[in-house]
């Protein structure tokens, strides 16, 4: 098992190295001079030369690459010229709303999808099963930003149940912040529940046709116990995988949803950075989010070892 963990760790390092390389290349494919693009048309040649030197763009591409890797190894994601602060600090400052939005949305998606998915599999072929499959497909077809706008209009503007936008004032309590996150989390959670629902149903269907479920029923165990203890426990592995995938989808969705609801999160920071061509921030955010995705997948692999005793690598 330790060998497997080490192998996975080595694989993760290789992937992260490639992720860093891709992030480095993305900015270098900018047509023209990135420094000139960042400073805009009013910049003087001296300003551009200064910024090129500051960003290290005046060095050869290989030197730039090794300097970038060295900088990252020291935990330095660069410096935002527009925010006039280190990218790491800017990301940390904006991480909280994105983190809670992702967790809150994932929780909403699970609350919707898990029971429906389990019930749909249990009542395979029934009206509820067919309806849930169709609704899952419908949910996956709705753009989260559109749903966010509709919820904002109906629930916040017309009925004044939730705040229209924002993340509460500077001194807002945790509950107040969650209250502000409810609508964006609902928009993201509803859309993301589709994938979890379909995987839960599929995974449960696989397990429900296994011999040990028949044996459990033959022993006279209560149906509730058969489904929730015997079947669900064994169906968890694919569900865990999809939860990891959904977390990545949610981070992605958060970029747009944060913009709709004016949440001061990483998504909003990235969109503003793109509009300002603040490349260090874009690079930093990409790197951190891709790194998180790789870590989540690694953590899920490790969770398999705990959840399923049959998994012995």
């Amino acid at each position: 098992m330790i060998r497997y963990i080490l192998q996975r760790l080595a694989g993760m390092i290789v992937v992260m190295f490639l992720v860093v390389t891709i992030v480095f290349v993305i900015v270098r494919v900018t047509p023209g001079d990135p420094a000139a693009v960042m400073l805009g048309p009013d910049a003087t040649p001296q300003d551009i030369t200064d910024l090129r030197a500051r960003l290290g763009l005046d060095k050869s591409i290989w030197v730039q690459y090794f300097l970038y890797i060295g900088q990252l190894l020291k935990g330095d994601l660069g410096h935002s010229i527009f925010l006039n602060m280190p990218v790491t600090a800017a990301l940390m400052e904006r991480a909280e709303p994105t983190f809670f939005l992702t967790i809150f949305s994932l929780a909403i998606a699970c609350v919707i999808a898990l029971p429906i998915g389990i019930y749909a599999a249990y009542r395979r072929g029934s009206f509820i099963d067919q309806a849930s499959t169709f609704l899952a497909m419908l949910a996956a077809s709705i753009p989260s930003f559109w749903l966010g706008l509709i919820l904002m209009q109906f629930v916040a503007v017309r009925h004044n149940i939730f705040p229209v936008s924002g993340y509460g004032g500077p001194g807002a309590s945790f509950l107040d912040r969650m209250y502000h996150l409810t609508l964006p989390a609902l928009a993201l959670g509803l859309v993301s529940s589709a994938l979890i629902l379909r995987f839960t149903r599929a995974s449960m269907l696989d397990v429900l046709s296994d011999d040990y479920i028949r044996t459990a029923r033959a022993k006279g165990l209560a149906e509730r116990r058969v489904i929730l203890k015997h079947a669900l426990k064994n169906a968890l592995i694919p569900i865990l995988t999809v939860l990891g995938l959904t977390a990545a989808v949610l981070i992605s969705g958060a970029v747009v949803t944060e913009t709709v609801f004016g949440l001061p999160g990483i998504g909003n920071l990235v969109v503003s950075a793109v509009l300002r061509r603040d490349y260090p921030v874009i690079q930093g955010a990409l790197l951190v989010i891709a790194g998180l995705y790789v870590l989540i997948n690694f953590a899920i692999d490790m969770l398999y070892l705990l959840v399923d005793p049959r998994v012995r690598y």
Binding site: V19, T30, S252, G253, L286, I289, A290
Partner: peptide, 24 residues
């Protein structure tokens, strides 16, 4: 295969945003 893994580590829309930012 490793390149595919690395590309798939980026959330779709975020990578698209970064590419659009780079290319205009």
């Amino acid at each position: 295969a490793r390149l595919i893994d690395a590309m798939m580590a980026f959330p779709d829309i975020l990578l698209a945003i970064a590419l659009v930012a780079a290319l205009g």
